[in-house]
């Protein structure tokens, strides 16, 4: 009971302090829907990911390891590998295409300026994170992200997304998805460091690198090598597998529809 009271009083105090400093002056500075200043992170670094699609075998090891590392609720994913069956219209031959998707940690992230409480923000090192203690769960960032990279976590009732496993990066470890990638398709690194693997690869393959939905002006920092142009925007495709949970919310086997 005391603890509850103390927390309540603490919140009240923060409310009072906050109300006293409502920065009305900042209205004049930051324009509506423009990026607020970055906070935290190492300004000497700019984290980015390069995904070599030629090496991706669609095994979903990244999906699973991310799920375990970040404890996402069942059916919600911080990263997933989209798997496509592509038919050659001329010959009828089938092939597969795998496209790992995650937060693009854009340089102009549309999810950040819309956040009404600045719970979601971009660090100086480019990583976009969510302060789940501050997030009010309004879902505005989920709407604003053109990549469907965000979701409301039903356990925390706040916005959730890929953080490039920033907690692991800080400890000198690779993100879970990078660590578990059997083909070595995911390369993470600091693109401000010319000696990093990612910088060297980006130099080498510069003209072949592609990002998702570049016309949105978000400047994504997840770069794809070996990308098929048909998949840069929302692909014209038929969806087959829909659910991972049945009507009783228990996990179920995948069912195929339509073919």
């Amino acid at each position: 009971m005391d603890l509850v009271k103390r927390m309540f009083m603490g919140q009240l105090a923060r409310l009072a302090a906050g109300a006293a400093f409502v920065p009305l002056a900042s209205v004049a500075h930051a324009k509506i829907n423009e990026q607020p200043p970055r906070r935290g992170g190492d300004p000497e670094k700019r984290w980015a990911m390069l995904i070599d699609l030629r090496r991706c075998i669609g095994c979903q090891a990244c999906t699973v390891s991310c799920h375990l590392e970040n404890d996402a609720p069942l059916g919600k994913f911080r990263t997933i590998v989209s798997q496509y069956e592509v038919e050659d219209e001329a010959t009828g031959d089938l092939s597969t295409f795998f496209l790992p998707r995650l937060c693009n940690h854009c340089d102009n992230p549309p999810c950040v300026p819309v956040c009404p409480v600045q719970a979601t923000y971009q660090q100086h090192d480019g990583i976009v994170v969510v302060d789940s203690d501050r997030c009010v769960g309004c879902g505005y960032c989920v709407q604003a992200c053109p990549y469907d990279a965000r979701f409301i976590n039903e356990h925390t009732q706040t916005a959730d997304k890929c953080t490039f496993c920033t907690h692991r990066l800080e400890a000198g470890l690779s993100p879970a998805c990078v660590e578990s990638c059997v083909g070595g398709a995911r390369i993470i690194g600091d693109i401000l460091d010319p000696d990093s693997t990612i910088s060297k690869m980006m130099d080498e393959h510069y003209s072949d690198l592609k990002v998702l939905q570049p016309e949105k002006g978000t400047h994504p920092h997840v770069f794809y090598l070996g990308m098929d142009d048909r998949f840069i925007d929302r692909p014209e495709a038929l969806a087959s597998v829909w659910d991972v949970r049945g009507e009783d919310f228990s996990e179920m086997g995948y069912e195929f529809s339509g073919h």
Binding site: L15, L24, V27, I32, P113, P116, Y140
Partner: peptide, 9 residues
């Protein structure tokens, strides 16, 4: 909302 006013939103 009132403790963390955000003029961009």
């Amino acid at each position: 909302f009132y403790a963390h006013f955000t003029s961009t939103s």
